[in-house]
Simulated assay, not measured.
Amino acid sequence: MSIQPNENYVLSLLKELLDTPSPTGYTQRIMKRIEQEAASLGVQLNWNQKGGAILTVPGQDDSYTIGLSGHVDTLGSMVRAIKPEGTLRLTRVGGFMMNSIENEYCIIHTRSGQTYTGTILSTQPSVHVYENARTFDRHESHMEVRIDELVETADDVKNLGISVGDYVSFDARAVITPSGYIKSRHLDDKASVAALFGLLESMKRENWKPRCNVKIMISNYEEVGHGAAYIPSDIKEMIAVDMGCIGDDLSCKETDVSICAKDSSGPYDYEMTGRLIELAKAEGIPYAVDVYPHYGSDASAALSAGNNIRAALIGPGVHASHAMERTHKQAVLNTTKLLAAYVK
């Protein structure tokens, strides 16, 4: 029997996660929220040494364990240098186009716990001043943060407590429209994390147990390639739950669950992928099977690290990944449904 995800729960949690800054390496606050949510659902949580969470749900057969993963770390930046005129030079955290963050509001997070707002601009930000403003290369060295404080020199900035190595998070600008679209930065991969918690919430609300043990890994270093390099040794098969891509040569839509057959790390497990396809058909879940040549996942990291597992990859279809992203609530809720069908 199909489960029905709690739409209000999933979307409310997703909005909260999107509004919580968590660039890779600066995830302590959002991980605390994950811990609180797991406790509210009565789910056991343990930590790995990198600060990632492992949530354990006992199954009807405790001799076999399935791993599911999603990541809460996002794209972001770090202060590379404080410039003489009082702006900040950036170094990127994660792989995104620099032009995708131009004119974006941001927050500077100091190691003492202070925060300051700012705007990310090119060093030639005005067509009224710079002849080449329209064609100027949006290279990392040509971008800077204009801080919303009275600063004119590097010393002014340092006196605020801002230092090289401080994190800079991007304003997510999360909106859920009346038509059901969710537009925001960082749907990669907070939409999947919300879907995973939708699975846990349905287990509690509808009082059902998975057929075998399930361990849900919430990783915090996925965007730099090693989020789930370590996984618990009892996991035999793993599904990375991460966003599906939309664009040329791809059939996935914003309402679909993406089932990835192959990404840059190679093909995913044939039997697991086939079973996910058959379950989507049986449950009437809109889905698409695609190949993502410029993509890697937590399952890729786990396989590359030598874990003795089979692996697959699914997730909600997301448009404009690593930029201003958008999905639809149907894709998020249907991802929960497909995961439930797999573990039941």
Score class of each variant (00 low, 15 high):
50 K>F: 12
50 K>T: 11
50 K>A: 12
51 G>K: 00
51 G>Q: 02
52 G>T: 00
52 G>E: 03
53 A>C: 02
54 I>T: 09
54 I>C: 10
54 I>D: 07
56 T>D: 10
57 V>R: 01
57 V>M: 06
58 P>W: 02
58 P>H: 06
58 P>E: 11
59 G>H: 00
59 G>C: 03
60 Q>K: 15
60 Q>E: 12
60 Q>F: 08
61 D>L: 04
62 D>I: 06
63 S>G: 04
63 S>V: 01
63 S>F: 01
63 S>N: 09
63 S>K: 08
64 Y>N: 07
64 Y>I: 11
65 T>K: 00
67 G>Q: 04
69 S>I: 01
69 S>E: 13
69 S>D: 15
70 G>A: 14
70 G>R: 01
71 H>A: 05
71 H>C: 06
73 D>N: 02
75 L>I: 10
76 G>Q: 10
77 S>T: 11
77 S>C: 15
77 S>K: 08
77 S>L: 14
79 V>E: 08
79 V>Q: 04
80 R>Y: 13
82 I>V: 10
82 I>H: 05
84 P>K: 11
84 P>R: 07
85 E>M: 12
87 T>G: 08
88 L>S: 06
89 R>L: 14
89 R>C: 09
89 R>T: 09
90 L>F: 07
90 L>N: 05
92 R>M: 11
92 R>P: 07
93 V>S: 01
94 G>L: 08
94 G>N: 04
95 G>H: 07
96 F>R: 07
96 F>I: 09
97 M>V: 12
97 M>P: 05
98 M>K: 11
100 S>E: 12
100 S>T: 15
101 I>E: 06
102 E>A: 12
102 E>G: 03
102 E>S: 11
103 N>S: 13
103 N>C: 12
104 E>C: 14
106 C>S: 04
106 C>K: 01
108 I>H: 01
108 I>T: 02
108 I>F: 01
109 H>W: 10
109 H>A: 00
109 H>Y: 03
110 T>K: 00
111 R>P: 05
111 R>E: 12
111 R>Q: 14
112 S>C: 05
112 S>F: 06
112 S>E: 13
113 G>K: 04
113 G>A: 02
114 Q>R: 14
114 Q>L: 14
114 Q>S: 13
114 Q>H: 13
115 T>K: 09
116 Y>R: 00
116 Y>A: 01
116 Y>K: 00
116 Y>P: 00
117 T>Y: 10
117 T>Q: 13
117 T>W: 09
117 T>E: 10
118 G>L: 03
118 G>T: 01
118 G>Y: 03
119 T>N: 11
120 I>Q: 02
120 I>H: 00
120 I>V: 14
120 I>S: 02
121 L>D: 07
121 L>S: 07
121 L>E: 10
122 S>N: 05
122 S>P: 08
122 S>Q: 10
123 T>G: 09
123 T>W: 07
123 T>K: 15
123 T>Y: 06
125 P>I: 03
126 S>E: 11
126 S>V: 10
127 V>I: 12
129 V>L: 14
130 Y>D: 11
131 E>M: 06
132 N>I: 05
132 N>W: 04
132 N>C: 02
135 T>A: 14
137 D>V: 12
137 D>E: 13
138 R>F: 13
140 E>R: 04
140 E>G: 08
140 E>T: 08
140 E>P: 07
141 S>L: 11
141 S>Q: 13
142 H>P: 05
